[in-house]
């Protein structure tokens, strides 16, 4: 079991490194990155200088090595050793240390990418966690309900409603909730992000309600249908017939024998969906103007701020890989057949 976990983690690390390599190559495929840093009024002299200061004149292998080194032990900016040494004497405040895992330095924001991400991440994580809990709870609940009442009116209503909700675009739901629930009917205060430190858990929750709900509704609709399908499939298995033949009550048959097998595959889907959300929910964050990673990506894109974009892609990829490993390990706990492999 432990060997299995270690093997999964080792594979995860290899996967992560190859992902960083691919991202890095893509970064350089888009032309000389110094150009975007150099800005609109770029002269050839300035470009040469920028290229040198940021180390873009080094061979790509060296740059990749240094980037990996930065991820592992951290590094100092600017990259060019001679330039940094000079700067340290003249203006030591401008030398920035980027601690491991260093994702890079954004010239545009005059800050390390880590600092940028740290600033925007709490909003995204808060929304993701809130939405996740909401959608898993109601999605599975209504999904099981629909499966148990298959073909009855309750099932039809649930399936119909979820289809409509699933089809609604997120910006529509978000705008609707904002315009009506918050502004017109004033059922909740106008949504703004309040950190736990500022507003306590209550304020934090209230602030998150609408954006999280917007996000959760979409996933919830999908999960109602997926759960329903998994439960129905599980209930048609032979071992359910065996359980009934033993004379167990319907409740035990459903909850003990049916749900466990049905919900196991949901585990891996939920893990990956949650990981994907950690990269930022661009539309939801834009509609509510929440300063999350999605918005950071949009801003970085507008500014051609490549270091931030690279950092975001790596964080998003790492989230997926880590959740994947977590799900695999959890799976081994749930399904005894996996343990043997």
């Amino acid at each position: 079991m432990i060997a299995y976990a270690i093997r999964r983690i080792l594979v995860g690390i290899v996967l992560l490194l190859s992902m960083v390599l691919v991202v890095f190559v893509l970064f350089f495929a888009s032309g000389n990155p110094a150009k975007s840093v150099c800005g609109k009024f770029c002269t050839p002299e300035k470009l040469t200088q920028v290229t040198k200061v940021y180390g873009y004149d080094q061979p790509i292998t060296t740059q990749f090595g240094e980037f990996i080194q930065g991820l592992a032990v951290g590094r100092d900016y600017p990259v060019n050793d001679a330039y940094r040494a000079a700067l340290e004497k003249s203006n030591p405040d401008l030398v920035i240390h980027c601690a491991a895992p260093c994702l890079g330095y954004s010239q545009h924001d005059a800050a390390t990418v880590n600092a940028d991400i740290a600033k925007y991440a709490p909003v995204t994580i808060s929304i993701a966690v809130f939405a996740f809990i909401f959608w898993i709870f109601f999605g599975v609940f209504f999904g099981v309900l629909a499966a148990v009442f298959k073909g009855k009116w309750l099932d039809r209503i649930l399936v119909g409603v979820t289809l409509v909700v699933y089809a609604l675009p997120t910006f529509f739901v978000g705008t609707f909730l904002l315009q009506y629930v918050a502004i017109k009917w004033q059922l909740v205060p106008y949504p703004t992000y309040v950190s736990i430190a500022d507003g306590g858990v209550g304020g934090w929750l209230v602030g998150l309600t609408l954006p999280a709900l917007t996000l959760a509704l979409f996933y919830m609709a999908a999960y109602v249908r997926i759960t329903r399908a998994f439960v129905l499939e599980s209930l048609s298995e032979d071992y359910i017939r065996t359980a009934r033949a033993k004379g167990l009550t319907e409740r035990v048959v459903l909850f003990k024998h049916g749900l466990r097998a049905a919900l196991t595959p949901l585990l891996s889907m939920a893990g990956l969906d949650f990981a994907a959300l950690l990269a930022g929910a661009v539309i939801t964050e834009s509609v509510f103007n929440y300063q999350g990673l999605g918005l950071l990506a949009v801003i970085a894109n507008q500014n051609s701020d490549l270091p931030v974009l690279i950092g975001l892609v790596i964080v998003a990829g790492a989230a997926v890989i880590i959740m994947n490993i977590l799900v695999d390990i959890l799976y081994a706990f749930v399904d005894p057949r996996v343990r043997l492999r």
Partner: peptide
Amino acid sequence: MRRRRGKDVAMIFQDPLSALHPY
């Protein structure tokens, strides 16, 4: 009927692998 099922009348199925719960 449930009270008699598995007590007075019992049943064995064709494929014992799928008839037993894997978990």
